[in-house]
Amino acid sequence: MSSPSRVDLLLDLADDELILGWRNSEWTGIAPFLEEDVAFSSIAQNEIGHARALYELAARELGTDADAVAFDRPVAEYRSAPLVELRRLEWARTIARHWLYETADAVRLEVLKASDDAELAGIAAKIDREEVYHRIHAEMWIDRLLGSDEGRPRLDAALDELWPYALGVLDDELRPELVTRVEAKLGRSLPDVDPVPRGKHETELADLLEEMTSVRRSAPAGARW
């Protein structure tokens, strides 16, 4: 039997992946160098791909299709975390968000992989196999920036700025694990702040959805694209 909380759980994940994939694809074509552009675009595509797989599961329970769930809801119904909604087209912040998100996502996926819900555990495992490369990518960038005189202060500032948002990706009980992992990697403690929780949307989300659905809304509902 499906319960509404299962759909909500799927949408938490799917909306995070969709919105972050959308944000990361803002870099496609203008990343700091060409090799990075290709790699970062793959990460954005993987995220959209994960979102699609999750929306398909949610859509089955809601009696609709993945695109309708992804595109046709009012802003207030999106369940994404504010971390992924921020428009931050600046590389140090992009890397900070990427790494914080991947670290939080790893914590969340570990729990889901152990779920009694076989379908959910299965898709979490599948997603995690791609996320491995995202984490390798994020960590190599963190190491690079921390080891660079100009990169370190930029990254540190970005991490401090985004930290309350990163905490908001996870539920209360999983947050301590995120703190442990992030602090271990950075070798320093992060500010003790209140999380910016899921559901409290940034204004950037409305702008994003406006643009994301502009072509789709130009034809009557149900039109094929």
Partner: peptide, 10 residues
């Protein structure tokens, strides 16, 4: 950013 379906966006 404006692609009208997930498939087209990908």
């Amino acid at each position: 950013l404006r692609a009208p379906t997930l498939q087209r966006k990908l």
